[in-house]
């Protein structure tokens, strides 16, 4: 378990990290990055699995089931669309470099 004050430090440092990461991003990558960060909060899947895992009665299991369902959608969907977007960047980069040569 993470104790109160240590968690506060984690919140603070992670907050600055997120700010730093995005402050240097060119506008063209904003949509992929938004999509990418959307994928990263798909980590909620881990929490959802635990929530369903500790459920003790049918009500909790039903809600936990919904949690895992939604979280899996977030993680998988976020990954697939981000990957598809960035795939295009890669190919156009190659072509671009080729033309410049």
């Amino acid at each position: 378990m993470i104790e109160g004050l240590a968690a506060l430090y984690i919140f603070m440092l992670a907050g600055f990290t997120g700010y730093e990461i995005i402050s240097k991003v060119p506008v063209i990558l904003h949509t992929p990055l938004m999509s990418g960060s959307n994928f990263v909060h798909g980590i909620v899947l881990v929490g959802a699995m635990i929530a369903l895992g500790i459920a003790e009665n049918p009500t909790q299991q039903a809600i936990g089931f919904v949690a895992v369902l939604l979280a899996a959608g977030n993680a998988v969907g976020g990954y697939v669309v981000t990957e598809r977007m960035l795939e295009m960047f890669k190919s156009s980069n190659k072509k671009d470099a080729g033309e410049k040569k």
Binding site: F11, T17, G18, S37, V40, I43
Partner: peptide, 13 residues
Amino acid sequence: AMIIAGTVVGSAG
């Protein structure tokens, strides 16, 4: 892991 990933996305977003 959830705290870090969530907060990073929170501030970046």
